[in-house]
Design a protein around this nucleic acid. Structure first.
Length: 981
DNA sequence: CTCTCCCT
């Protein structure tokens, strides 16, 4: 016990750290700096990874001292030693003070007080839950505790739900521990710095899940830490489920492993009270957070309609009446963010002299010399505003000194340049340069006001925020559980996320949070937001799990299970994509039900599971090698996977200048779209062709920010596509090395033939996303005229005006994701051929009558069909004759006619009955028809291939049955040359 | 005709 305490004592560590030779430490720091400089593909907008001022300071002492004059060799040498010694001393002092700083910072973290408790719990339990709010320092400290307590016999793996966090945490911990990034490393989707020396590895949750596919027992790891488990991201949930099984397995095999689940909120019951997950509930250790207090102010009334108006008024009041400090506002979407920004900039403009140079470019024309007050007073003032204003401040906060009084004579709408407000938008899709502005101090004399969406809740932390204004709402995606069709809705947030938002006001000093809803409304919020896994389709997760040989996904120990409907829908989709074996359709009802939820994976499914994209796209990739289409298929799948490849140019402009620039860029993009869509045949590939053109052109130009900017492409999206193309190319080569795929930066456009092929390949993956133009009799509403119906929705969908197919309006088209933007026109006769699993076929047509195809050796026919659920009539197409007795009858008829085996042709004239009697219903009355049919059925022979293979083992097969059709005189001759191959 | 946020 005493020994343990000493081991975990920070003082002990402090000493051993400082005892490190200065030189060694120096190299470590330098390496790390280089690594920071080279950081690629990481969102530079995050404060955590921005190269800080400190970096510059540190670089200074790396530069060699260089004042040299002509000296004697000896003098020079002496002087050099002196200099070196001096320099070394300076370095050592610097390092010591830095270490002291770090140690001090570490000491302030509440988690340090719990080190001993945590480590004892870890020693005594295979799984431990650590519960601590943001600011407790658990993410950076717990890995160090583990390392120092000797748990680094294997790798200590820590998962994060976001790439930025994995990268920045690895750097921070390396620095704190004064270890090289060779030892404290990270791995995210496209990059990493893991080496054979790595002991602490930060990674995204998806990366670890992929590693489990390669090594189920994770033998290289001694500990896994799941961070931010409260966020309940799908991968985190699945990892916890998997690890709850892996940990006991490892212990049983004598390769012990520890699992730590770290969660911010106290909602840990899903982990601890779930006996399916952990039979023995893991201990929960609570860690206090070091946060400044945040005073919460509720509204007395809750605006239901115009909450953005309410937000506007609240910001005005804070800005006019309260002491300095940044304001962070939570709204639900891009459009809201922009419109509020505009309104605030008009209300509190600031002069040019206050502006930063970067800011100048965009806004210099906006700061007008004088504002037309009449014009402003004409702006719509929110109805019922006074009413609400009177209600500001809730009982709970009466008398609080920062409570904002309500002055009905407030004239916020009048421009007031005397108190400039530095208003910035912030949302995920905003260009990184724009995002980065929120991390810089505002221009002198102004107050920072960031209007943000949910990104600011978890992903990005803005410094200097003292006031938070929370509208209490979120925009969320909702999926229909059966059809998988999605839509966006604005709803109330949860209490947990409202508290998270409030916490953003207390990072640097005590703060205030203004909630624009009453405490009663807050009380009605759900405590936590639902786990993501219950809110979305799960076909991708199910495929991954089947690939791990978890056939009965229903029995998987999810912390929270997806609904049964979602699981059934996922298996159905995977079956129709050919990734899972079709379940039997006959048998007892109960068995059928069971089988529907435990379909085993197919070889195709395994290949699909190895492609890091959605199953529909994985299917498209799997078909991609045909007709040399692979490079195009990879580019198209990459483009479909990355969201928003085109810049949003429809946003409202801030100034006339900006507006005219936007108009120019819009015009340019429209022109480029037309160019990329191509002419004639390629046009039918629709928006896929536009994307293919955009990707090709961008890559051809070297994928530069300039090219993207000039052509309306989102640079970040194009970089992601470029890397995804590389990754997908490797993945395809791994499954199918003979295709030898490579990324060609100078890809030429596909030929007409390839375009047709691409359209078909894409269709094969998007069968359930087929849409048909609303037909004459279906137009119930004039608005539906150019609409499209999908099998899944009652309401029609429309082609986006910017779509390449807007003017063409093909009868059938494929849509993907939920955006009606992505289109590819589809020929009606492809549907039954490429998507037979979605079609109901009628019986084979009489005319043209079924025939024997001598090249394939099978029976062919024409069949009409209808598309599933919606029963769209599809044209008759040529296809295999369906299985069944009829097919045997037909086959025997063609056999007798000498079509199957040409050698039998010479006996046709000698047959005792006409072969066509095989088809009559009274055929059974004839012994010879029955003999022939019976023989074929007994060996399941209904095509040439199976007939030949039976003859290989049984060369007299069919001889006697056939002889019954011939006069006895011929029997011997026939027997001699049997089988007639 | 209008898209919150993440991950392999």
């Amino acid at each position: 016990m005493g020994k343990l305490r000493k081991k975990h004592n920070w003082k002990g560590r402090h000493q051993s750290d400082t005892q490190q030779p200065a030189d060694e430490a120096k190299t470590d720091v330098v390496v790390e700096l280089q690594a920071v400089d080279r950081l690629k593909g990481v969102d530079e907008s995050n404060a955590l990874v921005l190269p800080a001022n400190k970096a510059k300071k540190k670089k200074a002492w790396v530069t060699p001292v260089s004042t040299k004059r002509p000296l004697t060799k000896k003098q020079r040498k002496e002087l050099q030693t002196v200099l070196e010694r001096k320099e070394k001393k300076v370095r050592r002092a610097d390092i010591l003070s830095k270490l002291a700083e770090v140690q001090e910072a570490r000491l302030k973290l509440p988690v340090l007080a719990e080190e001993q408790v945590i480590m004892e719990a870890v020693r005594e339990n295979p799984c431990v839950v650590i519960c601590g709010e943001t600011g407790s320092g658990k993410t950076t400290q717990v890995p160090q505790f583990l390392y120092e307590a000797g748990y680094a016999s294997g790798i200590i793996g820590i998962t994060e739900p976001r790439r930025v966090a994995a990268v920045s945490m690895s750097h921070r911990v390396a620095k704190e521990m004064n270890l090289s990034t060779r030892v404290v490393s990270y791995q995210i989707r496209y990059e990493g710095n893991v080496t054979s020396d790595t002991k602490i590895k930060f990674m995204t949750d998806g990366v670890l899940l992929k590693e489990i596919q390669k090594d189920f027992l994770l033998q290289r790891y001694s500990v896994i830490v799941i961070d931010e488990a409260h966020e309940r991201s799908v991968y985190t949930d699945i990892l916890i489920g998997l690890l709850s099984r892996i940990v006991p397995l490892r212990n049983k095999k004598g390769m012990p492993m520890k699992l730590l689940v770290m969660s911010a909120t106290l909602r840990v019951e899903d982990f601890t009270d779930n006996t399916k997950l952990f039979r023995i509930p893991p201990p929960v250790i609570k860690v206090d957070a070091r946060q400044f207090p945040v005073t919460i102010h509720f509204n007395k009334r809750t605006p239901m309609e115009d909450y953005t108006g309410e937000v506007f008024h609240k910001i005005c009041k804070i800005h006019r009446m309260l002491p300095p400090g940044g304001i962070l506002v939570f709204l639900t979407g891009q459009a809201e963010v922009h419109s509020l920004c505009r309104r605030l900039r008009k209300a509190f403009p600031f002069r040019k002299s206050n502006e930063e140079s970067a800011f100048k470019r965009h806004l210099c024309h906006q700061s007008l010399p004088r504002i037309d007050l009449d014009n402003y007073s004409a702006l719509p003032v929110d109805e019922g505003d006074e009413d609400r204003e009177a209600g500001i401040g809730d009982e709970e906060d009466e008398g609080s000194d920062l409570e904002i009084g309500d002055d009905p004579n407030d004239a916020e709408e009048k421009a007031d340049p005397s108190i400039p407000l530095y208003v910035l938008p912030l949302y995920s899709l905003l260009a990184p340069e724009q995002q980065a502005k929120v991390f810089r101090p505002p221009p002198p004399g102004t107050r920072l006001c960031v209007i943000a969406t949910n990104v600011a809740e978890t992903s990005l932390t803005i410094p200097g925020i003292k006031y938070v204004v929370d509208c209490g709402r979120v925009k969320k995606r909702f999926y229909d559980r059966v059809t998988g069709v999605s839509s966006f809705k604005v709803t109330w947030t949860s209490q947990a996320s409202a508290n998270q938002r409030a916490g953003r006001a207390g990072r640097t000093e005590p703060g205030h949070c203004y909630r624009l809803y009453s405490s009663a409304v807050f009380g009605d919020f759900s405590l936590f937001s639902e786990a993501e896994i219950t809110r979305r389709p799960v076909e991708d997760l199910v495929l991954q799990m089947k690939d791990l040989n978890i056939d009965k996904v229903v029995n998987f120990p999810f912390p929270t299970s997806p609904s049964a409907e979602a699981l059934v829908a996922a298996e159905q989709l995977l079956v129709s994509l050919g990734a899972l074996k079709e379940p039997p359709r006959t048998g007892r009802v109960k068995d059928i039900e069971q089988a529907r939820l435990s379909c085993p994976i197919t070889p195709l499914g395994r290949a699909m599971a190895s492609f890091p994209v959605a199953p529909r796209y994985a299917k498209i990739l799997a078909l991609g090698k045909q007709q040399d289409c692979l490079p195009y298929v990879i580019a198209v799948v990459a483009a479909m996977t990355v969201r928003e490849i085109f810049e949003d140019l429809d946003r409202p402009a801030g100034s006339e200048d900006e507006s005219s620039k936007l108009n120019q860029r819009r015009a340019r993009l429209t022109q480029m779209r037309r160019l990329w869509a191509g002419q004639g045949a390629s046009l039918l590939l629709g928006d896929l062709m536009v994307m293919l053109g955009a990707v090709g052109a961008c890559e051809f130009a070297g994928c530069t920010p300039k090219f993207c900017e000039d052509n309306g492409l989102r640079y970040k999206a194009m970089v992601e596509i470029r890397r995804l193309r590389g990754q997908l190319t490797n993945a395809v080569n791994a499954v199918c090395p003979e295709v030898g795929a490579f990324v060609n930066p100078k890809m030429t456009p596909p030929t007409e033939h390839q375009v047709v092929c691409l359209r078909q390949i894409v269709l094969a993956g998007l069968g359930d996303h087929l849409a048909r133009r609303v037909q004459g009799e279906e137009i119930l509403d004039p608005k539906w005229k150019n609409g499209y119906k999908t099998p899944l929705m009652d309401e029609p969908v429309f082609i986006h005006p910017s779509s390449a197919l807007f003017k063409t309006l093909p009868e059938f088209r494929a849509v993907w994701s939920e955006v009606p933007l992505g289109l590819d026109s589809v020929e009606a006769e492809w549907v039954p051929q490429l998507l037979p699993q979605y079609c109901h076929f009628s019986s084979p047509q009489e005319s043209p009558s079924p025939w024997f195809c001598s090249s394939t050796g099978t029976l062919r026919c024409h069949r009409a069909s209808t598309f599933f659920r919606v029963a769209w009539q599809l044209p008759a197409v040529e296809m295999e004759y369906p299985d069944g007795l009829e097919r045997y009858k037909l086959f025997s008829r063609f056999l007798l006619e000498g079509q199957v085996c040409p050698k039998l042709k010479k006996y046709v004239g000698r047959l005792l009955s006409n072969p066509s009697i095989m088809m009559k219903t009274w055929a059974k009355l004839q012994p010879r028809t029955e003999a022939l049919l019976g023989a074929l059925v007994s060996k399941r022979v209904d095509c040439r291939d199976t007939l030949y293979s039976v003859w290989k083992t049984e060369d007299k097969f069919l001889l006697s049955a056939y002889c019954q059709w011939l006069p006895e005189a011929l029997h011997q001759e026939v027997a001699k040359s049997w089988p007639p191959i």
